[in-house]
């Protein structure tokens, strides 16, 4: 007995609309974040993550309205990432109703942001999103590096060391995405997940590569993840959240059913 391993659907939001639509929930408007969040809540999601991919700065504030609307009607934890540059961005999202804010590139550019933000709002509100890629050659001891810009730009930073540093700086949680696995549907990078999870005391959310329900269970059992995040397998109705949790429960994982 402790805490249930969480199953988290992740939604991309562009200028206030859910993109890469959700195809299974019987909702009137699959682009409406409130409808989609409500559907996932009813389906038993433990938490919802919105990734704001709005490119135009004119539309930057649309995410605040989205968060306000969702938090007014859906009463489960809500994490929002994308475009966070300063503490005031964090504050505005939390005041709009987000529970946690994901910081990615800005943490690499200026790690002190993580410390400032967690000092100000508490570690439990700060998720550091970490995009990692394997850089060791086959046969060498495995090593991963932090990449930015959607996996295109190497930083030279060792992923495990970075996770430890971010935890020291006050991150309350790590959202770990394997850029090698993202979109592949062949499963999480379990060695990476295990390396990060063992290195830090804070919870780790595994992301990138989920193609079936065993992948989710493996993320927890073999990777040591505290939560698993997926997008397409849920959005396109291949599996429901409830099936995912039942499958994890069948493999002796503590979940909220």
């Amino acid at each position: 007995m402790g805490v249930a391993k969480r199953v988290i659907p992740c939604l991309d939001v562009d200028a206030g609309r859910v993109v890469k639509g959700v195809k299974f929930l019987e909702i009137r408007d699959a682009g409406d974040p409130v409808n989609v969040a409500r559907g996932y809540n009813e389906a038993g999601a433990d938490e919802i993550t919105f990734l704001d991919i709005t490119a135009s700065s004119d539309n930057r504030d649309t995410i605040l309205h989205v968060v306000e609307q969702v938090a007014s009607e859906v009463f489960i934890p809500l994490t929002v990432g994308g475009g966070i540059r300063q503490v005031s961005d964090v504050r505005r999202l939390l005041n709009a109703g987000a529970d946690k804010v994901g910081i990615n590139t800005a943490a690499v550019t200026r790690p002190e942001l993580v410390r400032e933000a967690s000092d100000k709002v508490g570690s439990q509100c700060i998720v550091v999103a970490l995009d990692a890629k394997q850089v060791s050659a086959p046969g060498e001891p495995q090593r991963w590096e932090i990449f930015t810009h959607g996996g295109r730009k190497p930083t030279g930073i060792d992923a495990v060391q970075w996770a430890i540093k971010m935890a020291d700086f006050g991150a309350g949680e790590i959202l770990l995405t394997s850029m090698d696995r993202d979109g592949t549907k062949i499963g999480f990078d379990l060695a990476l997940t295990r390396a990060i999870s063992d290195a830090v005391q804070i919870p780790v959310i595994a992301s990138g590569g989920v193609g079936n329900l065993d992948h989710l269970a493996d993320g927890v059992l073999k990777g040591g993840a505290d939560a698993v995040l997926a997008a397409s397998i849920f959005h396109f109705g291949e599996y429901s959240i409830r099936e995912a949790k039942q499958h994890m429960a069948d493999r002796s994982i503590e979940v909220r059913l």
Binding site: M1, G2, V3, A4, K5, R6, D46, S123, Q124, G172, E173, Q201, I202, P203, V204, G224, D226, A227, R256
Partner: peptide, 21 residues
């Protein structure tokens, strides 16, 4: 106080984050 474990020996993280009975 770290390290925390379940009676089954599983490691528990801090913060305690998520759904508990």
């Amino acid at each position: 106080a770290a390290p925390l474990h379940t009676p089954e020996g599983e490691r528990l993280k801090v913060p305690h984050m998520g759904w508990s009975q």
